[in-house]
């Protein structure tokens, strides 16, 4: 169906997509996880209420989340250039993806952590646990299954965002789909890239759900 050059291109696009998704997710999670935990801890009802910080973080997160991804990506171009030296290719896409998805992850983490039974937190407090001990020994382990499910959602969202970066020179499968499938009317290439994306999403989601279930001792 395709010649070797096309196949190789799709193969490279696949790897680029994976690379963008995984690296972006890793960076975004490193930012989003502490941010989400901070949101819960500093909440009015939280363990260390700090309302001004909570509000400030909330506003920043909502701001970043409300700007449509592609527009945010374009707005960030100068920053991207400053960080990685270019505004094109997978590396440039990662900067935008991290900044766009970290707030999203923070909200997912916030939701997961808030699910932890208040009574269990109270029990830990009654034993003299410090806020840090509560975070690392209670909140994170108890929320683990939910955090894993959230991670699967985040990864698949980043994957679809990464495909969108194809429109603005981001690289990967999205880039191929847009350049060949959209601009050159090569529908077959479009379909193949989309199919690959669908399969990746399915696999990642499945892995996430399995991991969450294996790790959960509540059942």
């Amino acid at each position: 169906m395709f010649d070797n050059a096309t196949l190789q291109m799709i193969g490279e696009g696949f790897l680029e997509t994976l690379y963008m998704t995984i690296v972006s997710f890793a960076f975004a999670y490193v930012i989003g996880l502490p941010l989400g935990i901070t949101l819960v801890m500093t909440d009015r009802e939280g363990i260390r209420p700090l309302v001004w910080l909570n509000r400030l973080l909330g506003v920043i997160i909502n701001l970043l989340r409300s700007v449509p991804f592609l527009i945010l990506f374009l707005v960030l171009t100068p920053l991207t250039r400053a960080i990685v030296g270019t505004s094109l290719g997978p590396k440039a896409a990662i900067v935008g993806l991290v900044i766009a998805s970290a707030p999203f992850i923070a909200r997912l983490v916030e939701g997961s952590i808030k699910e932890v039974d208040k009574g269990v937190i109270e029990a830990a407090e009654s034993m003299g646990a410090s806020p840090m001990q509560i975070i690392f020994k209670v909140l994170m382990p108890e929320a683990k299954p939910s955090l894993i499910v959230g991670s699967a959602i985040a990864v698949t969202t980043i994957l679809s965002y990464s495909a969108m970066t194809g429109f603005v020179g981001g690289g990967g499968l999205g880039d191929i789909a847009i350049r060949y499938g959209y601009h050159r009317y090569q529908t077959d290439i479009m379909l193949v890239t989309v199919a690959i994306l669908v399969v990746i999403v399915q696999i990642l989601q499945e892995i996430g759900m399995k991991l969450a279930k294996i790790g959960d001792k509540r059942i």
């Binding site: 039974d117 009574g119 269990v120 109270e122 029990a123 009654s126 034993m127 209670v138 382990p141 108890e142 683990k144 299954p145 790790g215 959960d216 001792k217 509540r218």
Partner: peptide, 14 residues
């Protein structure tokens, strides 16, 4: 000071 609760409040993942 130990404390016990109506809903036990055990860590479910331990």
């Amino acid at each position: 000071m130990g404390m016990i609760f109506q809903q036990f409040n055990l860590l479910m993942q331990r």
